[in-house]
Design a protein around this nucleic acid. Sequence first.
DNA 1: AAGACGGGGTG
DNA 2: CACCCAGTCTT
Length: 406
Amino acid sequence: MLVISIEDETSTLTRGHLRTAWALIDSFGWNGIKTRLQGADVKVAGIRSSECRPLNARAIARALGAWYARARRDLPWRRSRDPYRVWVSEIMLQQTQVERVKDFYQRFLALFPTVESLAAADEHDVLRAWEGLGYYRRARQMHAAAKVLATEHGGIFPRTVAALRGLPGIGRYTAGAIASIAMDLPEPIVEANSRRVLARLAGYAKRLDRPGGDEPIWKIAHSLVPQRDAGRFNQALMDLGAMVCTPDRPLCTACPLARMCDAKNSGRVSRIPMKSVRRATKQLREAAIIVRRGARVLVQKREEGEWWAGLWDFPRVQAAARKIHQAIGESKTLQPLACTQPKALGTFTHTVTHHRITLAVVACTAARTGKLSQNLAWVAVDKLGELAMTSPGRRIAKMIAQPSVR
DNA sequence: AAGACGGGGTG
DNA sequence: CACCCAGTCTT
C-alpha cells in the first residue's frame, strides 16, 4: 500500500495504481508532491519505472547549488539579467559553443544595445554583425522578433513561455531560458548539457535523437526545477554538463551529483545518453566566379531559401573543374557579361552541415556590362569588408585583396 | 518524423 | 575525418 499526498488531497494507491500515480506526478510536478514513497518501487515524473530512477529534487538542487557557487563560469551574459541581453545570448548560443559566442555577444550589444535599436537596424547590418557565427536564420528571426517586440509589446518582453514562444526564433528551450534566467520564473530547460546530465542522473538510456525523444528529459527537468532561483538552477545544470558531465570522459570524481547518479552507479556513463546515428555527408562540386570589371568585382546576394540567405557571395556555378567554362557560358547571371580570360585561382573545400563543397575559384573579366538584377552588385575590392559575406565568400575576398593576386 | 541550417574546435 | 555544440523551423 502506498500513500501519496498531493497538495490538499490524499490518494491511497496500490501498486496496481502506479500508472495513476505517474499521471499525478506528471500533472503536478515532483516538487508539488509530498511523497512517502521512499521504500516503494516508484520512479519519477511521468516516466515508466523501467526507464529511469527516482530523483530527489531537493538533494539535487542543494548539491548542485553549492557546486555552482564555487565553480560557475564567469560568462559575459551572466553580468546582466536584462531580458534583451539574455535573449541575445540565448539565440547566439543555439547550437554554438560558448567560447565562440563571447566576442560576438559583446560586439553585437555594442552595436545594438536595446531591442529598439535592433528593431530599427537594417537587416544587412544585423547580418554583418553575425558574419562568421553561422545559422544566419537566427539573426534574421531575431531582427523580426525585435520589430514585433518594439511595435506590439512596447519593447517589453512577455512574461510567459507561451508568449515568448510566439516570437520567431524562440522555441521551447529559449523560452524556458529567458523565463527562468531573466524573469526568475520556475521554467525548465533542456539543451545539450542538461539533456546529458539529466539522462545520466536518471539513468535514462533510450534514444533521444528523434522528435519527442527527449520528452522524458523535459519531464525530469520539470520535476527538478525549483520554485525559486530557477535560472540559477538551470545555469548550474548547464555548467555541470559543460565542465564535469562531458560527453567523453566525464569527471565523475568531481561531480557533486555522482552519489545520486544512476548512470554512474550502474556503470553506464559511457552509454548514456545513447549516441545518435550520423547522416553521411554529401559531396558537391561548385565554382565561385570572380568577375572583374576594372577595380570592381561582381557579388551576388543569396536568395531566400538558399544557404546563407541574405548574405553576399561571389556568383557560383555548379560544375566540376573541367566543366566550369561551359557552366559560365550557360549561367543566366554570367552569360550576358561575356566573361573572358578565365583563370583558375585554386580550389578549397567548405563543409556546411552534412555537405562537403569542393569549391574552385575562377577569375575572369567582363567584356560587357549586363543589366544587373537587384541581387547583383559591382563592388570595389577594398569595399568588400563592408558586406555581410558567406564564409567561403569572405575567404575568397581575402584572397583577392592580396596584392599578389590582383 | 526527418531534414535543413554554419562554423569552428578538438582528438 | 568524426564528433560536438545553451535549437528552431519547415516539409
